[in-house]
Simulated scan of single mutants.
Amino acid sequence: MTLEGRTILVTGASGGIGAAIVERIAAEGGRAVIHYGRDEARARALLESVGGSGWIVGADLSSPDGATKLWEDAVRQAGRVHGLVNNAGIRSETTIDDDLDAWQSAWRHEFQVDLFAAVDLCRSALRHFRQHGGGQMVHIASRAAQRGYAAEAMPYGAAKAALVNVSKSIARSFGKDGVTSVAIAPGWVRTAMAEDFVARFGEAAATGDIPTGAMATPEEVAELVAFALRPSQRSLNGATLDVNGGSYIR
């Protein structure tokens, strides 16, 4: 029970990776604050599935004040929060042939959800952690942050790359305050988004450049997140952990 007695806020927790993270936290003795954007019923079902030990909080991370309100609501319900998992994310598509308004809108929306909301949560969490003896952060980035991304989804890769840099800056700047910050950079993960891609383009389009021949599962990612959240893993501070089956090796 390596997370026993610890409370972790997980954003985007009603989705595939987020739900697996919540389940893993519960399995290791922790309690999750389950954030959802729209699907309250799914968030409630997830809370029920882990024995009702935790809380659910709704927040629109596409709103400029959504992340700050989320943190305030989480603390109001849970009290002391020991960890933050920035998992919520979107994947916007736009091309250089789109009109300028559509191009700029896609970039701004992507960065609001995948970066600006995350850094606002980091700000709130860091202030809370400094007052209460430290805490852990895990940021779900992407292989795209490391190697670049497809032309039609450049905003996603750029936002995730910035998130990795934020994680490193936090690690360097706040380690002395008992804070650790770790980024996890998956390749393809077997989620609903991946299944949609496979339905459109075929399995080989997703797994063809993965030496292991398979996508990661949400449970694999969740196991690694829970490990990084352990207070015993202080020396992981600043790391970016690749979970891509060998499709990108630094």
Rank of each mutant, 00 (worst) to 15 (best):
N237H: 09
E23A: 02
V189Q: 05
V225M: 08
L3A: 10
R31T: 04
T207R: 03
Y156N: 02
A13M: 15
G187P: 07
G213A: 07
V113C: 04
A27K: 00
Q146E: 02
S53V: 13
V243E: 11
N86Q: 14
E219W: 09
E23F: 01
V179E: 13
G202F: 11
F174C: 13
G175T: 09
A151C: 00
K160S: 03
L46Y: 09
V221T: 09
G54I: 13
G51I: 07
M1C: 07
I21W: 08
G29S: 00
L9K: 10
G135I: 08
Q104H: 04
G66H: 00
G58D: 04
R200L: 15
A194R: 01
D65C: 00
I8N: 02
I34K: 09
D101A: 04
L46W: 12
G15T: 02
A159P: 04
G202C: 09
A78V: 11
V22S: 13
Y248I: 00
V10P: 09
V57K: 09
D177R: 05
K69T: 07
A13G: 14
I249A: 02
R76Y: 11
F111V: 06
R143H: 04
S63M: 01
A102E: 02
A205W: 03
N244G: 04
G18H: 09
L163Y: 11
V113P: 02
G238F: 12
A226Q: 02
E48G: 13
D60I: 01
F197T: 01
R24T: 03
D114P: 02
C122L: 15
P218K: 07
A239L: 15
N87H: 10
A67I: 11
S169H: 12
L3H: 06
A19G: 15
S173I: 14
A158R: 03
P186I: 09
Q112V: 08
R230Y: 08
I21L: 12
W107A: 06
T95Q: 12
S173C: 15
F111K: 07
T95K: 07
G79Y: 12
A205S: 03
G245W: 05
A20Q: 05
S92I: 00
R6T: 10
N86P: 15
I96R: 06
A194W: 03
V198M: 01
N165V: 14
T191W: 08
C122N: 14
N86G: 14
D39W: 08
T7S: 14
I21G: 07
L121V: 13
S124Q: 15
V166K: 14
I96K: 04
G79C: 08
N165I: 14
E223Q: 04
A145Q: 03
D39I: 10
D120H: 14
G133V: 02
L121N: 10
V33I: 14
S49H: 09
E195R: 06
G245K: 02
D196S: 05
A239F: 13
E23Y: 04
F201P: 01
D196E: 05
G15K: 07
Q104K: 00
P218L: 14
L46Q: 10
L229A: 10
L3S: 07
P64V: 02
R42I: 07
S14F: 12
H109K: 03
I56E: 10
M137R: 07
V243P: 12
T2M: 03
G58V: 00
R250T: 06
A222E: 05
A183C: 14
A216S: 07
H109F: 05
A153H: 03
R127L: 15
S105N: 05
A222W: 07
